[in-house]
């Protein structure tokens, strides 16, 4: 149920989340900025939830979904899923490649570069 206080508490969440976001993201080093971008990109795919919620609403007279609405929601859910699944997968692919110096299994050549 939507009451006036929901707005204020939601706005509080909004503002606090913004601050937390700034603090957390500021700690990410340049090295990881590309995965960060694709990772956070995946996170905003969470709008998918909006589509899921709307497709679960009871069919009550004034709030009924017509065929066009349903089609739009299917597209929205597909878009959101692409955003989430693609984003997390591609980020994982990138991060998996980051290896530190004593490379456990240098692929092509011998074990050069482990003098440190």
């Amino acid at each position: 149920m939507i009451v006036a206080s929901t707005l204020t508490s939601n706005l509080a969440i909004l503002v606090l989340a913004g601050f937390i976001g700034f603090v957390v993201i500021s700690k990410v080093p340049n090295t990881l900025h590309t995965p960060l971008m694709s990772g956070t990109n995946a996170i905003h795919g969470i709008v998918l939830l909006g589509g899921l919620l709307l497709l679960a609403l009871p069919e009550i007279a004034p709030f009924k979904l017509d065929a066009l609405s349903e089609a739009l929601l299917v597209i929205a859910i597909a878009f959101g899923t692409i955003n989430i699944v693609g984003g997390f997968l591609v980020t994982d692919r990138m991060l998996e490649m980051f290896k530190s110096r004593p490379a456990p299994r240098a692929r092509e050549r011998g074990s050069e570069g482990d003098e440190e």
């Binding site: 969440i13 909004l14 989340a17 937390i20 976001g21 996170i43 905003h44 939830l49 919620l53």
Partner: peptide, 16 residues
Amino acid sequence: LDNPALIVAGMIVGAS
């Protein structure tokens, strides 16, 4: 939509 998960996730992405 009154959904806290969406709000937090969206704002974090906005900040990033």
